[in-house]
Design a protein around this nucleic acid. Sequence first.
DNA 1: CTGAAAGCGCTTACAG
DNA 2: CTGAAAGCGCTTACAG
Lengths: 338, 338
Amino acid sequence: MSERNRVTLSDVAAVAGVSLSTASRALNGGGRVSVETRSHIAEVARRLDFRPNALAQSFALGRSRTIGILAQNSRGAFTEPVLVGAVAHLGSREQACLLYDTGFAPEKLADGVRRLLARRVDGVLVLGDGLGTQLRSVTGDFSVPVVYAFGLTDRPGDSCYVPDSEMAGRLAGEHLLALGRRHIAHITGEEGDAAAIGRERGLLASLAEAGLPPAGDTLAGDWGRAWGAAACRRLIDSGTRFDAVFCGNDQIALGAESVLRESGRHVPDDVALVGVDNWEYVISGQTTRHLTTVDTGLSALGAAAAAQVADGRDAPGVHSHPCRLVVGATTAGLPSDG
Amino acid sequence: MSERNRVTLSDVAAVAGVSLSTASRALNGGGRVSVETRSHIAEVARRLDFRPNALAQSFALGRSRTIGILAQNSRGAFTEPVLVGAVAHLGSREQACLLYDTGFAPEKLADGVRRLLARRVDGVLVLGDGLGTQLRSVTGDFSVPVVYAFGLTDRPGDSCYVPDSEMAGRLAGEHLLALGRRHIAHITGEEGDAAAIGRERGLLASLAEAGLPPAGDTLAGDWGRAWGAAACRRLIDSGTRFDAVFCGNDQIALGAESVLRESGRHVPDDVALVGVDNWEYVISGQTTRHLTTVDTGLSALGAAAAAQVADGRDAPGVHSHPCRLVVGATTAGLPSDG
DNA sequence: CTGAAAGCGCTTACAG
DNA sequence: CTGAAAGCGCTTACAG
């Protein structure tokens, strides 16, 4: 296992008593090589602990075994899990990754493209920062596959992976309905935000299928805890009857919860709460969750996008990545009463 | 900027009317080349948009421009920011990274080492999962630099980067003291956990310097919200007088807060709260923070460790990475009364 | 099925 | 200061 173990293919060939080209073919599976020769060479390679020099291979093949990642903002709270999911998947496929962060500066994009080109990357993953900002397509700049994660581009036909916002709203709605809730209110984040709109659509669709109207109008504000509290107060003051609130994210849900508690309402008995993002971290040995939430699956989304760069099994186009309900104390313990 | 733009060093040399070796030397700064020749070649290279083939360079120099990352658990909640910090820093230094996740399986470590060796990585970053588990040193397996992040090894002299737990406790204590709190209680996570111990030591040190005892004994349990609530209830029931609680992490703090509220105590007027981890995500446009917390700086820690692999400016040994107080509503708005 | 040879594009002693 | 040449270790047509 020592670093000094620089056994070369020539060494293997010499020991096996064959030519360099035969050794190469035998080990790479390609070309015609007799079974005996092949197994003999393989045996010698094993015995000598031969490990092909990846640098030489890359050079000869023109493949870097590296994927370039072009990020708008790699340090964003939501970008991180996408990035980690991608890096981890690529690692499992023996692909390194080279990150270039343009930091929302469009003029840096061209430079990033040039750098990745110079590094002869085998593919490019463009990391957006959500549905809010449209990505500029760089597909045409490369002859290798380009995939976009957590963002949509200005070019139809690009491979894009984004969270399924509508599914998020639908999962929350169906869960609350299954628990017997009939008066479901909705507090969300910024007005006009694409994710917020999708989630609302999903929620309303699930309610419509149950033949129910929402409890009051959707309250839109921002994505912070303070807004969640303010909106919940407004909801209470309005006299609207509600036994559940679907919140645009976990922060809003926590803000709403504190107000519900202060107003003497019990969570979840009087009012059930569902958030989005699954921001509660789980530490080993911990089993109980506080907030019921929808996990948008960003890490898996990053992995899926990475798989597409590396293997390209999916058809091109926009892929809505599924999300998942995570049940916690803010809805649990209530059997469905139909 | 097209991919087809395969201008080679030979092209540059030919157009400039010099030999390949002179062109190489001129562009790489090394060797004796007359000023005119050098600038002429540089000019030609620029005009032709020459970009050296990184694969050929790597092969010739034996340097992969890739750092191997050996992670115990790359998907851990705390490992992620460390990983992202490292990947982002490496990217800015034109270093790709190749992740190998051993997933707590020690027998996979040797395989990971072999793979990184075969890829001829220029350095290795070993990513631990906190102070709880000791890392096995692999420094001896490589001739390139090996650095450990978020964990300590079994070999003295290894370069390790870990969060400064004692500083975390001290920052929390000093902040609460500066706000005039004099009866500071402490609820922490698992008994015997290294981070918990360090934080307690820091808290007690700051109290001792102010000539104050802690309010009651440290309550240790687990790292979950439910424990935070239970411990706070116990604290109240014990009749201990307290006007502040330093909590082992943010989950515990949130659990404690809910109990304080239910018991009619105002946060922060009656009881101020400080957590650890800075788990509250901040979304664009959001300014108010709820929880005062200590950010353990894991992302910067990852970057520092990466910088050490790439440049090696620090002395070897254990580096305690500083943390940072983040003030939120659970302590804010209270002027110091001495 | 097997081997001799060229080639991937750069760096770097070594002569001149 | 400059150039001819070898070498990095592998892959892959091309002959035999």
